[in-house]
Design a protein around this nucleic acid. Structure first.
Length: 300
DNA sequence: AACTCGTGGCA
DNA sequence: TTGCCAAGAGT
């Protein structure tokens, strides 16, 4: 299960050579991007395609170039500026993280995984990614792309298990180039990039893969993933209704704020569920702080 | 450990 | 057309 030193060396060399020729020109990879810029890009990219993140990230960097700039505006400003990236609670956590940086870290992005992990919205992946990509640290970065590359190249499975296991983290740590080599940050980016561009979940481009002749999944005959039936109807779920509520509010421009009546919110959700169900979701959003209430009016 | 939390593009 | 999937985190 532990690859031989020779196979591991080949793995590193092929990935890094491939990355030299295929690295995407993402805006946060440009020279001069600050640690704050990398931090924001990582949070925005959680569960969200990077192509959709790029324009919003650019707006945020112009508007709030330092943590203190975001921390100085109301949290609702961040939620409004989030646009349609999805999971808008991430905007609130990003704002809270900026406040924490100002209050506890001299207005800077902390430069260790341990400190990064204390920030709202920062979990195992984001802490490792920021530590590696902006501070050049030795960190075990494991995202969905890296998990899939590892599953195929080493384990021979089409896709990783639904939830991240300790075994996977241990494997990722074993596959990391040594600290002395100084290659691990760029290697981490390279594996992620391969997963995003070549070793994709659907229709992988194995013909373009630098690891083709050394891949356990290929050697096993590219077995299919085991099908897991979890298909549930989307319409009527809390997530759908919450999305419709916040989406409706987002479009209700009224000066700086985005506000309307509870009644208008209830009438805006399509297909229309029971009004009580919409009200329940609205109450959740108010309780969580995503939406504020003033009498019969609600504001994003 | 299993669930919840948005949104849009694409095969 | 519709289900799958995308740089996960929090509980």
């Amino acid at each position: 299960m532990t690859p031989t030193a020779a196979r591991l060396d080949s793995f590193h060399r092929r990935l890094l050579d491939w990355f030299d020729d295929h690295e995407r020109d993402l805006p946060w990879r440009h020279d001069g991007t600050t640690a704050w810029g990398v931090f924001v890009s990582e949070v925005m990219s959680q569960q969200t395609p990077v192509a959709r993140v790029a324009p919003i990230w650019a707006e945020w960097m112009t508007r709030w170039p330092r943590p203190a700039d975001l921390a100085s505006v109301p949290e609702a400003e961040a939620v409004r500026a989030w646009g349609r990236l999805g999971y808008p609670r991430r905007a609130r956590r990003l704002h809270a993280a900026a406040v924490a940086m100002v209050e506890d870290h001299a207005g800077e992005v902390p430069d260790t995984e341990e400190e990064l992990l204390t920030l709202p919205g920062v979990g195992q992946y984001t802490a490792a990614a920021v530590a590696a990509f902006t501070f050049g640290r030795q960190a075990v970065v494991v995202d969905t792309n890296i998990r899939r590359v590892h599953a195929r190249w080493e384990t021979g499975h089409a896709l990783p298990e639904p939830s991240l296991t300790r075994r996977e983290m241990a494997l990722a740590a074993e596959l990391l180039p040594s600290e002395e080599s100084g290659l691990s940050p760029r290697y981490n980016a390279a594996v992620m990039e391969l997963g995003a561009l070549v070793c994709t979940a659907r229709s992988p481009r194995c013909g373009d893969c630098p690891l083709l002749d050394d891949c356990a999944w290929i050697a096993a005959g590219r077995p299919e993933p085991h099908y897991t039936p979890k298909g549930q109807p989307w319409a009527g779920t809390k997530r759908q209704i919450r999305g419709a509520i916040v989406g409706h509010l987002r479009e209700r421009e009224d000066g700086d704020a985005r506000t309307t009546t509870i009644q208008a919110v209830v009438g805006s959700v399509q297909p229309s569920p029971e009004p009580s169900r919409v009200e329940e979701c609205l109450e959740d959003l108010i309780r969580e702080g995503m939406v504020t209430q003033d009498g019969d009016r609600v504001t994003l």
